[in-house]
Amino acid sequence: MTAPRVANDLNTALHRLFAEDERVILLGEDVCDPYGGAFKVTRGLSTRYPHRVRNTPISEGALVGVAGGLALAGDTAIAEVMFADFVTLAFDQLVNFASKSTAMYGRHLPLRLVVRCPTGGNRGYGPTHSQTPQKHLIGVPGLALYEASPLHDNHTLLTRILDGGVPAVLFEGKVLYGERMFTGGVIDDLYGYDLADGVARIRLHDPVPPDCVLITSGAMVHRTVEALRELLLHDEIVAEVLVVSRLYPVERAPLLSLTGPARRVAVIEESTAGGTWGAEVATALHPHLWGTLASPIRLIHSLDSIIPAAAHLERQVLVQSGTIRHAVKELVHG
């Protein structure tokens, strides 16, 4: 059986959530049928659940605020911000209301709230529709950040997020929507994967001790796997990849147990440098790996630039498989 595409898997996950919990409400711009969302992730929901799915005006601040109000009143609220770039318009609702409400009234107040954000570039949408803005929301007490991946079942992920009772943002790499989910532990002829404690590990079907461990999140999986093959076949470097689904707070324990005695570690993200998720991961791991690392954890980012629209210019700025391969070679060979 062919695995579903990531957008379909997310859609199926949402349909299951709606069927399981009658308090689930979804709102966002253009999420209703027949359009079904800019990336078709919400297709079919408004037809099946007309009273629980709403198109909103172009009002990200209000739609995230409304979702917060729904969650406050006991609903399970799922909001879609059409492009992650626009989550900046909902910054107050996320940073000053939803996240703080879980604690600022002197007691724990669980909120079943997730804001879904189609994220990232390599799609030619240009400077205001291509960003990876995770870093702007990192380190907010009471706000959890997740990223969808082709290795993590989306129903499991969404259930985990909502049951956590902590307001969350789920970033969904736009490059993934048309790709198929990986299933059955197989990536390709060379690589397989397994899942433990929410972290997916990609390694050779017949594992050998790696020269390098690469840590990344969903949107970078395909580019990282491509780099993995090149590194193995052309550079004789063996690397393993850890793909996390919760970005923040960083889950240190599974990363530590899976990086094991690795002497070289890199974190790959599409974001520009400066106050990033990758830096958080490095900060979390350094004290524990200090004794075994041959060199500091390497951060692999996009260039410090806006994201151009033209394909050839966009490729030049964003992390590609070649960027990863080059950086890993430098890391391993010094």
């Binding site: 739609l63 409304v66 729904l70 000053n96």
Partner: peptide, 18 residues
């Protein structure tokens, strides 16, 4: 809450629930 205007959409969400 202490941020001006912040409650309006939150209250709208609660009103929708009600």
């Amino acid at each position: 809450t202490g941020v001006q205007g912040q409650s309006l959409p939150v209250a709208a969400g609660v009103a929708w629930n009600l």
